[in-house]
Write a protein that binds this DNA or RNA. Structure first.
Length: 427
RNA sequence: GGAGAGAUGGCCGAGUCGGCUGAAGGCGCUCGCCUGCUAAGCGAGUGUGGGGGGAAACUUCCACCGAGGGUUCGAAUCCCUCUCUCUCCGCCA
């Protein structure tokens, strides 16, 4: 959410920014409604002032045993007038709230203008895709052949887009989670957290999933509870409505959680394999920082996420999302894309964003500087470090051998009980 | 699930015949003074959001005592609903 004061004072810049993101419709109605709102509010405040003054007079008159009846009957009318105006005002208030909640963040100046993912510049490419001298198989085939992935049975249990792992596959998923968390905790200095996997609508609103993207979420029937689509939601909300001491910042959290997404509107996309599931595991990095440090923190966050791929020896590239491809709440986002041999292209495996004060404003996450009065909003950042299911897919495809086995990256072997390659389970 | 208690400012904590309480007091914090020694003392200041005025320091008005309604000329104080927290009992991984 943007600051209403900022919008009022910089209406043309905001309109410009919304245009760059491809939607400025709300800004025009905002100006109109806001003016009307302030007009009414002004009238109400004058009446309230009058009421406050006269109520005091009534109090003193009563104390002096004087007759205050005329004033009281006058105030009776003032009160009903106020009530009527307030009823009208709340409509405008709601409308303004609605617009504020629907406005995306303003892109940082370093974000290139663009329409969609084709306009995302590549920042760097690391590692070289291996060339195979046999027919490259997609990870779902590899996994099914090895007996470690079973989408058919998963569909029986639940439905489409759910994973079921066996044996070394299940172990691989678990190993990756531990490996990633250990790396981020021991080497990168993050604090491990294990948050709730279900959150209320307030938390969803603070991080930006609600009210605009409700259709992407799974909601629990009859309750104000949602399954989290990412650990970003519960972890960022750890500090909602708090005033943090400056000395605590920056705060780094790493959290493993399953993620649940309805994937509405993506029918037909990535129907096979682990790429697009209703439930997947992810290790997420979240930072809270002072404003002036947030962009350098974004760079280090990105490096932290990339480090996972480097250690797993998976080829990847990093792209900077253009204005038209960025997420709603983000001011700047890098995507990390891993090489998927069977698809012969790079696929997103991490997304690292700086939200600046967008989430902090919604969630009331502030900090206090020593020696200064007042509080300031923190900047929040997060990034996947990494999406685990997609990492499994990448390992299966990049590590596949002619005989159908899959070589496990060396860094991961200690987490696999020393296993070097995954071979077909005995039937 | 049953029975109670409670939600006030950064923190602790007053505040029930509704009216100079935006909120006593304490702690913490900031600035200044004092003090020659990591302490103590003294003075002042110290919530958030919004509207208006001012270049600014600042000033003025409105709102906010868990949330939302209601009663009233007037509510932190009375009534209703909800949420959350805590204690005891039961149940349970």
């Amino acid at each position: 959410m943007l600051e209403i004061k900022y919008i009022r004072q910089n209406i043309s810049q905001v309109r410009d920014a919304m245009n760059r993101r491809g939607d400025a419709a709300n800004i025009d109605t905002f100006e109109e409604i806001d003016n009307e709102y302030r007009k009414i509010l002004n009238e109400i405040e004058q009446l309230r002032h009058r009421r406050n003054v006269v109520s005091d007079e009534i109090a003193t008159m009563k104390a002096n045993k004087e007759n205050a009846d005329p004033l009281i009957s006058e105030m009776r009318e003032v009160a009903s007038r106020i009530k009527a105006l307030e009823a009208g005002l709340s409509g405008y208030e709601e409308k303004i709230q609605e617009i504020l909640f629907s406005l995306p963040n303003i892109p940082h100046e370093s974000v290139p203008f663009g329409k969609d993912e084709n306009d995302n510049p590549v920042v760097r490419s690391v590692g070289t895709p291996v060339s195979f001298d046999f027919e490259v198989l997609p990870h779902w085939t590899i996994g099914e052949n090895l007996g470690i992935l079973d989408f058919e049975r998963a569909a029986k249990i639940t439905g489409a887009r759910f994973p079921l792992y066996f044996g070394a596959g299940a172990r691989l998923e678990r190993a990756l989670i531990s490996f990633m968390i250990d790396l981020h905790v021991n080497i990168h200095g993050y604090t491990e957290t294990l948050p709730p996997f279900i959150v209320n609508s307030r938390s969803m609103t603070f991080t930006g999933q609600l009210p605009k993207f409700a259709e992407d979420l799974f909601k629990l029937e009859g309750r104000d509870y949602y399954l989290i689509p990412t650990a970003e939601v519960p972890v960022t909300n750890i500090h909602q409505q708090e005033i943090l001491d400056e000395s605590l910042l920056p705060i780094y959290y790493v959290a493993y959680t399953p993620c649940f997404r309805s994937e509405a509107g993506s029918y037909g996309k990535d129907t096979r394999g682990l790429i697009r599931q209703h439930q997947f595991n992810k290790v997420e990095l979240v930072k809270f920082t002072i404003p002036e440090a947030s962009y350098q923190e974004l760079e280090s966050l990105l490096k932290n996420a990339e480090a996972v791929l480097k250690l797993l020896e998976l080829p990847y590239r990093t792209v900077l999302l253009c204005t038209g491809d960025m997420g709603f709440a983000s001011a700047k986002t890098y995507d990390i894309e891993v090489w998927m041999p069977a698809q012969n292209r790079y696929r997103e495996i991490s997304s690292c964003s700086n939200f600046e004060s967008f989430q902090a404003r919604r969630g009331g996450i502030r900090f206090k500087r020593k020696g200064e009065k007042g509080t300031q909003l923190v900047h929040t950042l997060n990034g996947s470090g990494l999406a685990v299911g997609r990492t499994v897919a990448a390992i299966l495809e990049n590590g596949q051998q002619a005989d159908g086995s899959v070589v496990i990256p060396e860094a991961l072997r200690p987490y696999m009980g020393g296993l070097q390659k995954i071979e077909k389970l005995k039937a």
